[in-house]
């Protein structure tokens, strides 16, 4: 069933002269998990709060489960939207027990207790029901927040930087747990993060935001390998850029003619994106590159190489490849890695 659970069209929100969200378009299929990724201040949290109904948009529409909840003449309050929200600080009710917190959004009735038990076992809170939030660890508090938001079976679950309050050591584990829980529950989820690893790990789809709008929505692999804009290319993973001119048979760059991953008009000028795993280096006395820095990353090394033009590219090498700083190297493209070309004239 591929039904649209959340749709935002031309969403806009201003704070005085500052445009926090400007023309945001999004749509998310039921049961999918969308990561809203972007640098701080890009408007991702505002977008989330607009969907939740804590802020009123200045323009555009929001549709949840086929129902318009915000738009011209419509502004449904948060309690009528059937959204679940998990806050960065969890916002647990400190005066209520775990069970009371989780049951807060459930209507009185016979199913209340059953649903409470169901949700508590789903997130692994059994046995902690009578504790108070301050008696729980950070990871447990997080699960309470999740259970509380899931309990009323929301149309969409919204998570605002849900893992940023956890220790780095705990984060990976909790992240994996939460992903599993959400898959099991089949909940449509939008979650906000500034951490690209988190977004790539969690999201079925990742929406990269910049300056209040979505730059690109794509599956994680696609985002990484064929970024739609230079911003995305720079934001996701490590990338260097080389000036290039498009030709019939490829792209002409400082390191030679390279295959192009996308269509481009011959003669147009622009830049190609090269990732460290695209670039290979080999020691050569007459090599045109020169090693300027080396970063040790455990399993491998990343060398920074200066080209004759002064441009620098990075190259990933196995840890057995030890080159001295200042050594001359030959720089070439790893076979079978076509590069993405960003023509200048379509750039902003």
């Amino acid at each position: 069933m591929s039904e649209i659970a959340v749709r935002c069209l031309g969403l806009r929100k201003d704070y005085g002269a500052v445009r926090a969200v400007s023309g945001l378009d999004l749509s998310l299929e039921r049961g999918h998990l969308l990561a809203l990724l972007g640098p701080s201040g890009c408007g991702k949290t505002t977008a989330l709060r607009l969907i939740a109904g804590f802020e009123r948009p200045d323009g555009g529409t929001i549709e949840i489960g086929g129902r318009i909840v915000a738009g011209p003449g419509v502004a449904l309050p948060p309690e009528k939207r059937r959204v679940g929200m998990v806050f960065q600080d969890y916002a647990l009710f400190p005066h209520l027990t775990v069970a009371q917190n989780v049951a807060f959004g459930l209507s009185r009735g016979r199913e209340r207790k059953a649903r409470l038990e169901e949700v508590c076992s789903l997130v692994g809170l059994r046995g902690l029901e009578s504790r108070y939030p301050h008696e729980l660890s950070g990871g447990e508090q997080q699960r309470v927040a999740l259970a509380r938001a899931l309990a009323p079976k929301p149309e969409v679950l919204l998570l605002d930087e849900p893992f940023s309050n956890l220790d780095a050591s705990l984060r990976a584990q909790v992240r994996a747990d939460v992903r599993l829980i959400l898959r099991d529950a089949g909940t449509t989820t939008v979650f906000v993060t500034h951490d690209q690893d988190e977004a790539l790990f969690m999201g079925d789809q990742v929406a990269v935001m910049n300056d209040g709008r979505v730059e690109q929505v794509a599956a994680p692999e696609e985002l990484f390998h064929s970024p739609g804009s230079r911003f995305v290319a720079e934001f996701i993973g490590v990338a260097d850029f080389l000036p290039a001119t498009a030709q019939e048979d490829g792209l002409l760059t400082e390191i030679g003619l390279v295959p192009s991953a996308n269509e481009s008009r011959p003669g147009s000028r622009g830049e190609v994106m090269v990732r460290p795993d695209d670039i290979d280096i080999a020691p050569a006395a007459d090599g045109r590159g020169r090693i300027v820095a080396c970063t040790f990353l455990g399993t491998h090394l990343v060398y920074e190489v200066a080209l004759p033009s002064g441009r620098r590219v990075r190259s990933m090498q196995p840890h057995t490849a030890a080159y001295a700083e200042g050594a001359a190297v030959e720089v070439r493209l790893v076979l079978g890695h076509p590069l993405i070309f960003f023509p200048k004239d379509t750039e902003e």
Partner: peptide
């Protein structure tokens, strides 16, 4: 924290 109130709102309370 206002988040606590917002959480309650999103859980369906006026």
């Amino acid at each position: 924290h206002p988040h606590v109130e917002e959480a309650a709102r999103s859980l369906g309370r006026s």
